[in-house]
Simulated scan of single mutants.
Amino acid sequence: MSKRLTPATAALLTVPPLLWAGNAIVGRLVRDAVPPMALNLLRWSIALAILLPLGRRLLRPGSGLLLHWRRYAVLGLLGVALYNSFQYLALQSSTPINVTLVAAGMPVWMLLVGAMFFGVPASRRQIAGAVLSIGGVLLVLCRGQWEQLAAMRLVPGDVYMILATIAWSFYSWLLTRRQESSAVRADWAAFLLAQVIYGVLWSAAFTAGEWAIGRAPIAWSWPVLAALLYVAIGPAVIAFRCWGAGIARAGPSVGAFFTNLTPLFAAVMSAAFLGEVPQPYHALAFVLIVGGIVLSARR
C-alpha cells in the first residue's frame, strides 16, 4: 500500500522527470558534435567514475558481481546501453517533445511484455488505459493528422524511441526477479554500479561499431564537456537516487504518475532552448497518455 504523498516526497519524484527532460534537450543540442553511441559511452563512463566510491560495497569479495554476471550483463545491456543509445539515436531525427511523448507510452509496453513474457496478465481496466495511451502515442507519430495515419511514415527517431521503450520494459520486469544479495539490493549505488560496469562494456562495443562505419569524430568544446557532465551527473546519478528515495516513500503506484511530467518539462525546455514551440496535438497526446495511465492504475 502506498504511503501519503508529502511535499518533500513530491519534490523527490519531480526531480527525475525534470532531469530526464533535460537529457533529451541536451541530446538534441549536441547531436552534431557527439555521435549518439559515443555520447552514451562517455555519459556512463563518467557516471561509473562517480559511482565507484559510492558503491564500493560491490567491490568486496562475495558481493555477487561475478556470481550474477549474466543478470547484471543483461540489465546493463537493456537499461544502460540499449535504452539510452536508442534515445540518443532518436534525437538525431526527432524532437525532444516527440521523443518524450512516445516514451510516455511505456506503460503500454510494460503490460504487453508482462503478459507475453512474464506471465502477468493485464486487467480490463489496464487494457482500456493502454488503448488511451496508444492513442496519444499515435497522435504524436502522425503529427496530429489522423487522416494521415494509414499512410503514416515514421521518422527513424520515432522507431528508435519505440525500441527504447521496449528495451526499458524488459529491463523493468527483470528488476522484479531479484537474484543479488539483499545488501547490494539495499545499496542503490552498488546496485546501479553493477549494471553500469557491464553497461559501459556494451556501450563501448556499440561505439566501436559506430566508429567502424565512419561516424564523424567528436567535436570537443566547453559546451560539449558541460553537456557530458550534465547527462552523467543529473539524469544518470542524481535522478536515479531521487527516484529510488521517492519510490521508497510513496510506492511505485504513486511514482508512476510523475514519469509523465517528462514530456511537459521537455515541451517547456524545447521552447526555451531550441525554439521548438509545442503544437496543440502535443497537449492532446499528453492528456490521452496520462488519462490512460490514471485509468489503468485505478483500483
Rank of each mutant, 00 (worst) to 15 (best):
V155G: 14
W146K: 10
Q179W: 11
V140M: 01
L138K: 02
A204F: 07
L163T: 02
E147H: 14
A151R: 15
G214I: 08
V200Q: 00
L174I: 10
E210M: 05
Q145Y: 14
S133D: 09
W188R: 11
L138S: 05
S169D: 04
W211K: 11
F191Q: 13
I197T: 10
A208Y: 01
A190P: 06
W146E: 11
V131I: 15
L132C: 08
A186E: 13
V131Y: 04
S169A: 04
D158V: 01
E147Y: 10
G144A: 01
T165Q: 02
C142T: 13
D187K: 08
I213P: 04
R177F: 12
V155Q: 15
W168L: 03
R177P: 13
A167F: 00
A204M: 07
M152T: 06
G135W: 01
W168D: 06
V140T: 06
D158P: 04
G199M: 04
L138P: 08
S203E: 04
S169Y: 05
S133H: 04
M152C: 10
V137M: 06
W146C: 09
V155P: 11
L174K: 04
L139E: 01
P156Q: 07
A190N: 05
V140L: 02
G199T: 05
E210H: 11
A183V: 13
S182L: 15
G214C: 03
R215M: 13
V131E: 07
F170Q: 02
L193Q: 02
T207V: 08
G136M: 03
D187T: 08
C142P: 09
V200S: 05
G157R: 00
A190W: 03
L201Y: 07
F170I: 01
V200R: 05
L138A: 15
E147T: 15
A189Y: 06
A208H: 06
L154S: 07
I166L: 13
A205K: 09
T165W: 02
G209D: 07
P156C: 05
A183Q: 08
L132E: 01
Y198Q: 08
E210R: 01
A212D: 05
V140Q: 00
A151E: 15
L132S: 09
V155F: 15
Y171L: 05
A186M: 10
V131S: 08
L154M: 11
G144K: 04
G214F: 05
W168H: 01
Q179M: 12
L163N: 03
Q195M: 15
L138I: 11
I162R: 03
V196H: 04
A150C: 10
Q126N: 15
L149G: 12
T176E: 13
Q179S: 14
L201H: 09
A194N: 04
A128N: 12
C142R: 14
Q179V: 14
E147G: 13
A186F: 09
W202N: 00
I197R: 02
A205L: 13
